[in-house]
Write a protein that binds this DNA or RNA. Structure first.
Length: 509
RNA sequence: GGCGGUGUAGCUCAGUUGGUCAGAGCAUCCGGCUCAUACCCGGAGCGCCGGGGUUCGAAUCCCUGCACCGCCA
């Protein structure tokens, strides 16, 4: 392991306000960032906004604002949401940042110098709102946009092209050698067959779009939004301006994307990098989409889930937990109130929260809140379970299998509850001879709680912190590598705990 | 139309290279416990899309039919 981990979300297009889809990607990225920090790695976590393009200019016009005014407003909504979701990003990049504009222009020039960018002419059917050209084949004879259904315009214009076609073979070779480059596997197969079909040169500039980054030396052209947007991943790591930063984090990049924008990240982006002579990111992971109450989310249906509302009603950690636990990362999922309440009550209140609560309650009741490390508290079953859970937890986290990773943590929770029932401290306490054994039982459970706090911190930072505070061991979070302390025997000499308060009161269904 | 994938308990899904792989969670039913947030623990029932084949043995491989999904055209 090289000790560096660069994790990115896409930069979100600001013609839309944040919804559950944005929250999902960003939450997953945050979980990864926190997890890798807890392993003692150097982590760079970036998110941001994509602010150029015709659509933005138009939306601004409709709202009676300048484009800059519009994007400045919408950006705040994203930043506010991330704050409320406890998103620990290191960098928030905006494509209107001057630094980014410089990076894009110099990248453009670099590719031009290398002969991968040329001037040509583009002709085709164009959808203005979608800013997309369509080929005759894609239209099946109808002159409306396959995406939005609006009429198309015949457009013929001078354009700069990126010689994407030259990268068909190199990219295929790269995919052959890096079967983990695109995940999940089903997406890898899609990309592979797409590339195998042969890549075509890509138009990367537009005439007449004012709201964008000008082509260097030819300011009538602005750079195509995707070409502009993808380069943000380089701007963030200081490409062309901060050598040390760049060498620390490139190419340890892991890009999280929705499945709808996978192709830009798995085909265009790597080709751009190959053209520039740069190494490719480690991984592009495409996750699924959320439906709501079984239906596709859409503005017209009015069923768009507002993350702020969910947080206000249920709390941030229930939301984060649900997103990460309910579906396998990579697959589609359904967001329903019933599922949310059930998941939250069953996992967080009944199993996890209650285990902590009953443990602390007994420690308080039987031992006045203090349990010293007993002389012999080893327990073979606990040790074997922890070892297996930890190993599998790490494996799943490395594969971005959040739900499965959490499933492993819950094996500890379940075992804790069973252990408690089997040992029945409420009976032990009646027999003074069993006093020492009672200490062992309670200490093991507290120590288990300590580890749960660490394992769960990436997913539910607020709750995990609270738990560790209850246990009086929150210092562990300041350690260079808290995950390495998740082992028996590494607990404190004395647990001095706070009086218990339920971590997750049950929700009324 | 081409390529790829999926079809496993009532629901959501795990099942690496064929031989404790017939499982988990939720739901249902039965029993137990009472420290706890009417929680927790234990037990039970029900299942490998249809058909054919390979094999000593297949959810797992092959063929075929049906259904659904994704990408491309």
């Amino acid at each position: 392991m090289d000790g560096s981990f660069y994790i990115t979300t896409p930069i979100y297009y600001v013609n839309d306000v944040p919804h559950i889809g944005h929250a999902y990607t960003t939450c997953a990225a945050d979980v990864l960032a926190r997890f890798h920090r807890m392993r003692g790695e150097r982590v760079l976590f970036s998110t941001g906004t994509d602010e150029h393009g015709q659509k933005i200019a138009k939306a601004a016009q409709d709202a009676g604002l300048t484009p800059q005014e519009l994007v400045d407003r919408v950006v705040l909504r994203f930043q506010d949401l991330w704050k409320r979701m406890h998103i620990s990003y290191d960098v928030f990049i905006r494509t209107t940042d001057p630094e980014h504009e410089r990076t894009v222009q110099s990248f453009f020039l670099l590719l031009k110098e290398k002969g991968y960018i040329y001037k040509g002419e583009y002709e085709g059917w164009y959808c203005v709102p979608c800013e997309t050209f369509w080929t005759e084949a894609q239209l099946e004879g109808r002159l409306v946009c396959p995406d939005c259904g609006r009429p198309l315009e015949r457009l013929r214009e001078e354009s700069y092209f990126f010689a994407l076609s030259k990268f068909t073979e190199p990219l295929l070779r790269y995919l052959d050698e890096h079967p983990d480059f695109v995940m999940p596997e089903s997406r890898f197969n899609e990309i592979y067959s797409f590339v195998k079909g042969g890549l075509k040169d890509q138009s990367i500039s537009r005439l007449g779009v004012r709201w964008g980054i000008p082509v260097p030396g030819d300011p009538n052209h602005t750079i195509y939004v995707w070409f502009d947007a993808l380069i943000n991943y380089l701007t963030v790591v200081g490409f062309g301006r901060d050598r040390e930063l760049f060498e620390t984090f490139w190419p340890s990049a892991h890009h999280l994307v929705g499945k709808d924008i996978l192709r830009f990240h798995a085909v265009l982006w790597p080709s751009m990098l190959l053209a520039a002579g740069l190494p490719l990111p480690r991984r592009v992971f495409a996750h699924g989409w959320w439906t709501v109450e079984g239906e596709k989310m859409s503005k017209s249906k009015g069923n768009v889930v507002d993350p702020l509302e969910v947080i206000a009603r249920f709390g941030v950690d229930r939301f984060r937990y649900f997103l990460m636990r309910e579906v396998s990362f990579g697959l589609d999922g359904d967001f329903s109130e019933r599922a949310f309440v059930e998941r939250s009550n069953a996992d967080l209140s009944d199993n996890f929260g209650n285990l902590i609560h009953r443990t602390l309650n007994m420690v308080w009741k039987y031992r006045n809140g203090r349990v010293a490390k007993p002389s012999r508290y080893e327990d073979r079953e606990w040790e074997e379970l922890l070892q297996e859970v930890r190993e599998r937890f790490f494996t799943f986290m490395d594969r971005f299998a959040f739900s499965q990773a959490l499933g492993e943590v819950w094996r500890l929770v379940h075992f804790g509850n069973r252990y408690l029932d089997q040992k029945a401290p409420w009976r032990m306490v009646q027999d003074p001879i069993l006093g020492e054994e009672l200490d062992r039982v309670l200490y093991r459970l507290l120590d288990c709680g300590r580890m749960l706090g660490v394992f769960l911190f990436p997913f539910m930072p607020e709750t995990a912190t609270r738990l560790l505070q209850y246990l009086g061991v929150e210092e562990i979070l300041k350690d260079h590598n808290p995950l390495a302390l998740c082992d028996w025997g590494k607990g404190p000499s004395v647990f001095s705990v706070a009086q218990p308060e339920p971590l997750f009161p049950r929700l009324q269904g």
